[in-house]
Amino acid sequence: MDKDPILEVEKLNIRFNTPVGEVHAVRDVSFTMGREKLAIVGESGSGKSQTGRAILGLTPGKVTAQKLAFHGQSLLGLAEQQWRRIRGKRIAMVMQDPKYSLNPVMTIGDQLLEAARDIKEGAAARQHALGMLAAVRIRDPERVFRAWPHELSGGMGQRAMIAMMLMAEPELLIADEPTSALDVTVRLQVLAILDDLVKTRHMGLIFISHDLNLVRTFCDRALVMYAGQVLEKLTASELTEAKHPYTRGLLACPPEIDHRRSRLPVLQRDPSWMEPVGS
């Protein structure tokens, strides 16, 4: 991990206007990351996805922050044209379901070429695309290159999606529950690909997930979010030593294969967790 950070976030806030009033979905989130696997964990409604989207300027809510900088360049108040130079090129995003992220009327190959249009063209681009498909461990890149999205299985589609996101060789990849829709074995294979890419291409990865066990074994660091705030920042492998009762509760909840209990512990939510986290 080198010294200068890829992403600096300071006091990020996201608010939504709804018919029932303003919803403050993300409150004073701050973190800095380098070339590492950073997890944002939390339950639905914790603000983890909105945080990820805000980095790409994709949240429909109102974003304010003291600092939101990518390689020192502020991402606040960028014009649409400036965003286009960053989105999909320097920062890419992988969504949960490949079904909705791949264009159904374009072949996988065309979509890959489209993603790298500004960087490479012609035979070189094609070569690059095939190489990318191979990098995400697709066994027959030529066939997948010519395939339509509906011809691919879920795991294959998600790999093609990741290949597409990596075509422009981004410096930061935001993956929002990238493997939740996949079967367990495929899920781990896709993670292994991401792991590889972080190591070999020196990419930063923001891994948004609700699965603490996966985060514990896969990521470097973890931010635990609850009700729009970061409750705790931890080294992922030390997640089991978490201090906050919320994190501890989450860790205890899931049923375990080798440790059967007659009842599962239930998370007792404390209203004080909603209070602003003291600085």
């Binding site: 939504f16 709804t18 029932v20 009033g21 303003e22 919803v23 979905a25 409604g45």
Partner: peptide, 19 residues
């Protein structure tokens, strides 16, 4: 979506409707 909202107190008929 987030389950907690910070809203200004609306009049009673509106509160009844938004219950």
């Amino acid at each position: 979506m987030t389950d907690w909202a910070i809203a200004v107190t609306p009049p009673r008929w509106r509160r009844w409707l938004l219950a």
